[in-house]
Design a protein around this nucleic acid. Structure first.
Length: 441
RNA sequence: GGGCGAGUACCCAAGUGGACAAAGGGGGCAGACUGUAAAUCUGCUGGCGUACGCCUUCACAGGUUCGAAUCCUGUCUCGCCCA
């Protein structure tokens, strides 16, 4: 996995991960030597990151694989301020404790993609800018950082200008200062860790340039002839149908299992459309060029097999959740979509349905004539009322233990004790995807 | 402050005294077809009830009327024009 395949920039480019760089003329040359240090900042606005953050994380992964040193920067300090970019309203400030907890929680994600072990030739680092921003004095900032910034230039920035012209919202001095802090981060890492590259999403280009400027001015002050700071931005991930990437009906897709189960995560990738899957393989897996191209070829020949989606889902799930969770997710998907659940043994059944809504009922209800399915459905997450349950039944949308409820009068269909799997479970399904497990005791 | 116009269901939008739980479109859910896709076609889409029915809804509060989304009065919100 740690093979050094090709120079970083070429690697990023064929993957389509480069949106824009600074200093196009000298950057390739600069990056051709290994051992460069690059960082990317992440906002700890919550206790997990979403797949929207995955692209820059992958970029850091490529850095490391190409022999450079990646630094993941958690914005524990800047998170207290809030980046005005792309926001149309002032940010709600978070408490110190909140931000601190979020930093801890998010750092686990990086450990999955990056190698932090000190035995690695170029181990990754995780830093929190609260560590240096927190102790920074106000006067110090004004003298050493503020001096290098022109307000005239700052108010020209898109992110600021929009808010300045918006009387309703405006922008606070706090958020206005954000770019100084981000620029200072870069300078700090440049000084302390010889970090020369900043990676970020395309919306951060302006902030990166600020940092580069600051480094240049600062280093000239110190008599350094070749001040170096470069920026690489990643493209915005888009979907062919124009809808927003990374969102589903049930919300954002997160990178940790407590927010988005490995099964849901796997399903998300599996449902990628044909027109996006090639790009996503490049973005979200570490598979090599030839491998991806052969997968694509296979996919084109037999798109119905969805080899490309399967590969994408497998790689991404393994990366973030590990081999074991991947296997569970695949097994669950297999069982849930084939509908062949009655053959599962007890343990497999419990594993597959651990993430599915469930409810408990009294076994005695199944005695005698049994229980009307309509009545049971209304009590589950699958139908809101008896009337709705009747609709689903008559439409042929309901399955019991994987087989569709059919017959002349489906509304009158009943469940009996013989329907119990392993003596305690009956699985209901509405439509293709909505399952509900009922347990009986 | 003055004048005009608008507020309808998840969203857009018709309806300007009864046939209105309210056209049409979008979205959502389900079915067929499929590849857990796209496109297409079909059904459902205020709530509750085993078809008839009941309850709640057309910005809000009152009123006129046998009957109001529709008419009247007041209030609020939004848009445009004038000061």
């Amino acid at each position: 996995m740690t093979k050094i395949s090709q120079p970083l920039l070429a690697e990023l480019q064929w993957r389509g991960l480069v949106h824009q760089t600074t200093a196009d003329d000298v950057l390739p040359e600069f990056l051709s030597k290994s051992g460069r240090v690059a960082y990317c900042g992440f906002d700890p606005t919550s206790d997990s990151l979403t797949i929207g953050n995955l692209v820059p994380i992958m970029m850091l992964g490529h850095m490391q694989r190409c022999g450079h040193k990646p630094i993941a920067l958690m914005g524990g300090g800047t998170g207290l301020i809030g980046d005005p970019s792309g926001k149309d309203s002032e940010r709600q400030l978070q408490t110190l404790e909140q931000v601190g907890a979020n930093v801890d929680a998010c750092s686990k994600i990086f450990e999955r993609v990056l190698e932090f072990d000190s035995s690695h030739p170029n181990p990754a680092m995780l830093v929190n800018n609260a560590d240096w921003l927190g102790s920074l004095g106000y006067l110090e900032v004004l003298r050493d950082v503020g001096k290098h910034f022109s307000v005239n230039a700052m108010i020209q920035k898109d992110s600021v200008r929009e808010r300045l012209h918006n009387r309703e919202q405006g922008i606070s001095y706090t958020e206005f200062s954000y770019m100084l802090l981000q620029a200072y981060d870069f300078l700090h890492l440049r000084r302390e860790h010889n970090c020369t590259i900043q990676i970020a999403g395309s919306d951060q280009f302006g902030n990166i340039v600020c940092g580069i400027d600051l480094i240049r001015r600062d280093m000239i002050d110190q008599g350094d002839e070749v001040p170096r700071g470069y920026g690489i931005t990643a493209p915005l991930v888009t979907k062919a149908d124009g809808t927003k990437f990374g969102k589903t009906e049930s919300g954002a897709i997160w990178l940790t299992a407590d927010r988005t189960s490995p099964y849901a995560f796997h399903q998300f990738w599996l449902n990628t459309s044909d027109s996006d899957v090639g790009r996503y393989l490049r973005f979200f897996t570490f598979l090599g060029k030839e491998e991806i191209e052969s997968i694509e070829q296979l996919h084109q020949q037999e798109p119905q097999k969805r080899e490309a989606q399967r590969a994408l889902a497998a790689e991404a799930t393994r990366l973030l959740h590990g081999q074991q969770e991947l296997e569970r997710a695949e097994a669950a998907g297999q069982a849930l979509f084939s509908g062949e659940v009655s053959s599962l043994d007890r343990q497999a059944l419990e594993e597959v349905f651990s993430d599915v809504p469930h409810s408990s009922h009294a076994k005695t209800m199944l005695e005698g004539d049994g229980l009307l399915i309509v009545d049971l459905l209304a009590e589950t997450s699958l139908a809101q009322s008896k009337r709705e349950a009747r609709t689903f039944l008559s439409q042929g949308a309901v399955s019991v233990n994987g087989s569709k409820v059919t017959g002349d009068d489906v509304v009158e269909a009943r469940l009996k004790q013989s329907d119990l799997l392993h003596g305690r479970t009956i699985l209901l399904r509405r439509g293709k995807k909505a399952w509900h497990a009922t347990h009986w005791a």
